[in-house]
Write a protein that binds this DNA or RNA. Sequence first.
DNA 1: TGTACATCAGTGAACGCGCGTTCACTGATGTAC
DNA 2: TGTACATCAGTGAACGCGCGTTCACTGATGTAC
Lengths: 235, 235
Amino acid sequence: MARSTEPGMRAATRRATIEAIKERARHHLAAEGAPGLSLRAIARDLGMVSSGIYRYYDSRDSLLTDLIVDAYDSIGAAAEAANRAHRSRSIEHRFVAIAEALRSWARAHPAEYGLVYGTPIPGYAAPADTIAPAVRVSMVLLRLLADGVADGSIHATDPVPTPRSVRSELASLTELAGVDIPAPVLARGLQSWTAIFGTISFELFGHLHNVIVDYDGFFHHTMERLARFVVGQPD
Amino acid sequence: MARSTEPGMRAATRRATIEAIKERARHHLAAEGAPGLSLRAIARDLGMVSSGIYRYYDSRDSLLTDLIVDAYDSIGAAAEAANRAHRSRSIEHRFVAIAEALRSWARAHPAEYGLVYGTPIPGYAAPADTIAPAVRVSMVLLRLLADGVADGSIHATDPVPTPRSVRSELASLTELAGVDIPAPVLARGLQSWTAIFGTISFELFGHLHNVIVDYDGFFHHTMERLARFVVGQPD
DNA sequence: TGTACATCAGTGAACGCGCGTTCACTGATGTAC
DNA sequence: TGTACATCAGTGAACGCGCGTTCACTGATGTAC
């Protein structure tokens, strides 16, 4: 009480303001999309003069980068949590649980999903800071594959031979990720990965409109099939 | 030669101007994306005053609608052509051929692909005119499934039972499309459809960057597997 | 414990830009008789 | 074949708006001695 205020007070209000900026930014993202995100609109919402934002972000792009990093971290954390919650279950079960967690996240945060998995923002080049968070969600799948290979529940062979060129680039990927997964398994994993996001995007972007009514049921069913495919179950 | 000009001359130059507008619009689409598409910029390119555009389109949205319709028609025609060119081949072969045609089209027209299969444009509501062209590409797949069921090369049964709710909505879809396809086959078809577009989007939107080098090889391999899945081949 | 100084948050004005859309208009092109 | 009229393409000015970013500034908050 000797000091007029606690030390770290300024830092705390600063963090709070940054959070408030991002909260408003996410709000506008949902309404107008990434290209329509405006620093002036955010400042207005916060009762601040437009130039005030520049105390916190030195450009519109740096705010976008922050939002992208947050989105990747958030969906990555969701995947990790689902994996953790089901860690004692079968590989197939865990696969489905992770996929459903991804979809739930996407439905809860459609604008942020679009930000990272939708059409790239023209004129925006993602800086290197976004790479690590982007990979986080993929690591969950890679570890799942490694677990399945280790305990024998994922078949390492394949009826369709993996082409040489694909084999070799998958091999260098496993090295990079520090996991040892046979190429056919990795190929199936990558294919299932694109299928999960394809299904989520089709739903979110409206391409299943008038086709599917029970989105939950369709997604669950699709993921169960995909899980069988990943482990190499005869289909 | 009696008339100062041929009849229909005005209509022809009008068509040509509309084509020029759309050509410039597609060009800007590629550079700035749909939300950055500007009527003034197009007019400028054409050496026309900005209000001149309003002789041809009564708003920015109606130009967007035209571009969307064209994109759907164009990718639909590409799928139809691929199907036609391979019509005497096996179902699996035709499936792969159609998928590769879709991917080729997407790579040749990335902005238009993003326009129809990417993040929805905020504030733009697609009018009913876009429905018919949007369905065109799906019809190619539906007919392929029907052919395969008819000649026995697609298995109508499934190891994973199709949930009741999904079954019933798929049944109403076949009625609508005027084709008779068993629910399990339709389910696999729809799942493969989302997987095709998921794979194309992942490639185009940059999510396979630093993961895949040989995109052609990976895509082809993925589609071959998917084709086996669609016909119900043991995997 | 008190004071001097440095840091920081937020202001307000301005620069220079682009946008969609409306409106009254001119002049050329097509059509009907 | 020639003329009168209607249609249409494109002009130019204007309305009212929003944007990102810079800059010199004020006043409050924190820090060092």
